[in-house]
Write a protein that binds this DNA or RNA. Structure first.
Lengths: 240, 240, 240, 240
DNA sequence: GATGAATGAGGATTCATTCAT
DNA sequence: CATGAATGAATCCTCATTCAT
């Protein structure tokens, strides 16, 4: 990064055509790459197309990223910022019932991730994790684990406050997670290609959360089985 | 599984250049293709590698399958769509309660698809559908639609026999489908790379189905919301 | 050629299915190959297709011909039999005027070669001569030279008998030859692909021969130029 | 003709890997392609060889021409069809007798096409038309039809001005065309391989055109047959 | 820094030829 | 003899990457 840019750029009156937004280049490339990787996958995305969508030439792409793989990694890392700090704070301060917390959980995820470009990262990771083990580990640490912990804290709060029955957290977490991951995948893959029944994401999530909440509720129910399975210890005879 | 190879190959001096096994070839190629497609994705799998894993030469692959896409379709047919006839028959003849049918649905799916290499196809399609519209359409017709119809028939049976409350089939189908698709994705992507909480698929599915069944059950409950949403018509105020 | 065949085949009552016409195989292959080479050229003709059209398997083709090139050479050689002996005799015995001889020349060529499959050989040689120099030489000796000599003898007869003006034989021969070669090419190439004006070969040849005969005629004419050029010695100032 | 190469290449130490000569490349590639197509035929010419002869790499060829077929079409456009505009103009402005026009026709064709590498294209199309229907159609539209129309306009001019007898244009066109096509074929096939009588193209064409002109001339002649056949309507009794 | 012309390894597919049966 | 399954060299074309300008 040449010093002159840092000094001159912001204060210059009319930026020359060629100099416009030099610092913005990498960001534009990452945006373009995210879109294309999500749309077409890593292998099928051509570097030149990324460059073109970012409004630069092929050569420029390789000026900022040593290879297509490095570009991919940068895209993922860039889009997995530490949003969890903010979210954790929100949940610590949450005042309502834990049922409402769970509902808010789903709603907030949809509004901030699911319905935005960021859901593409989820799809991308699920699709390409096998081909990028180190990225998968990175994603695991940065996203999956914090996310699971967040959900687990919510569920634990419900149990601690007597709102939920005691449950095996392992399954609880995935029951909350699965609909979100499913939705992110579906939205970016078969959901766009198929002419089948169209899913309305908000409703789908609402149904899922209410069904779950009912399963978590204390008190008498006619289907006792789920309570059995959701109890604290996994059943040995079902384990692999 | 090329049994003959396991038995003969290591002990034989030089493997014959022209080993004629016409009937066995397609199966061996399909097995090899399934493995590689799941491991590396459709685009990243080289035809020659499929051939090599099946123990034949590049040319032989194209002797049996006109192109890589046709090979993929054959893999899907062999492992999934070709079995719907049998499955449909099973469900037509099913004698027990519809709740048991749903449980059987999940169990059978796991045993026949989910726990086998065939689940990789599901992951594959979710990952690559956007790139290969032809394959996506093929999969939509051969797998998604028959699958959704099968699930819908089960749910409808429950409603018709008074076992389930009347529900909006649109969401019902996806609530059944989502855990299976999620499991297939998870197993073949992040699940293999992460050291996080290990999911036991059978239990996960059991929890999901029981939770769902409870949501579908008739009679009084403390959480009425899910009943609201699962009623016949979607709520307008939730629609996008 | 196994002795048994020579001894047994003709005298056997009912020939087994597999033995029918064993000696005919090479001939059938040559016929099939001629057709296909003419239709599609040497490079674009697949060996398997030749075999299929001859009603045998790919392997059998290579049983009789060591390679595709050898097959090609055999096709050309087979179809350039010594028909010139017969034709020379015909012309030696011809009784009419030399003008009629030339007309007969064209007519006979069309009936025996031009309109038959044999014209395909002409096309084939013109198309592939560059790729098969030894075949070209062979064709030159077996066909081109005898043909040119035959034509030259006819023209010489006309000159000797005072029917034609003395001409430069070099051009005379080609003026007779060109329309035939052109027709053979046209018929097997662009003529089959184009929707343009359709040529009726017999009429075309008739026009050509009459035009030529008029150019050869003795006596006064208004266009003396062709007489100039057709005179015994080539004009030095036009020569390359 | 890549002049720069003749001058620079031998004396330079190591040829630069990335020699940027964007404007010159297409021309060099077209020249190389023309040569090779004519030498070896369309199918037998490898793209890489074209590139090598033009002094570039395989990839560069496809930078300028989308496919081998497009390359061929470009060769045809560059060398033949692109010039019809100019030729048509020449003939519209022609001042002399129509006989001179026809003579000029032949002479100009020989100078601009026949004696140049471009004549190889004619041979090429005659040889490969059946294999490449797309190319044949292209050639038919871009070369054959304009060429026939040009010739027909010349002949019609002669008839309209009372210089030629009324003739059946169908045969008239081919009588003009055939010697040129024959010459192109001969030159690039048997003519190069045979040791037979050597044809001097200019003289051959001169003889042909004078013979033709005499056939077209008005006034009394001793051989009336050609007049018969060249009259406006084809004779039914000669038709196939 | 930015460009885009040039490169060449890589991949799908074809087909002449071989050889076990 | 005849077959046709198997082979793998050959070919068109793509695209990540390099580098002269």
């Amino acid at each position: 990064m040449p010093l002159s840019k840092l000094i001159c750029s912001p204060s210059m009156g009319a930026p020359a055509k060629h100099e416009r937004r030099k610092d913005a280049r990498p960001g534009e490339l990452l945006d373009a790459a995210l879109e294309l990787f999500v749309e077409k996958g890593f292998a099928a995305t051509r570097s030149e197309e990324v460059a073109k969508r970012a409004g630069v030439s092929k050569g420029t792409l390789f000026l900022y990223f040593a290879s297509k793989e490095e570009l991919f990694k940068a895209v993922v890392r860039e889009n997995i910022s530490g949003r969890f700090v903010e979210w954790n704070a929100e949940f610590v301060n949450f005042q309502g019932s834990t049922a409402d917390m769970l509902r808010y959980c789903m709603t907030a995820w949809w509004e901030r991730i699911g319905s935005t470009k960021a859901s593409g990262i989820t799809k991308l990771m699920m699709s390409e994790a096998r081909n990028f083990p180190d990225l998968a580990t990175f994603y695991e640490h940065e996203v999956i684990q914090p996310g699971q912990e967040l959900i687990q804290r919510v569920l634990q709060r419900g149990v601690d406050r007597g709102e939920f029955r005691p449950i095996d957290m392992k399954y609880g977490v995935y029951i909350v997670l699965a609909p979100m991951l499913f939705l992110a995948m579906w939205k970016h893959s078969l959901g766009t290609c198929t002419a089948g029944v169209q899913l309305i994401p908000e409703e789908y999530l609402a149904v899922q959360v209410e069904t779950l909440l009912y399963g978590l509720s204390v008190g008498p129910r006619s289907h006792p089985a789920s309570a059995e399975i959701l109890r604290q210890e996994p059943m040995d005879d079902l384990a692999q």
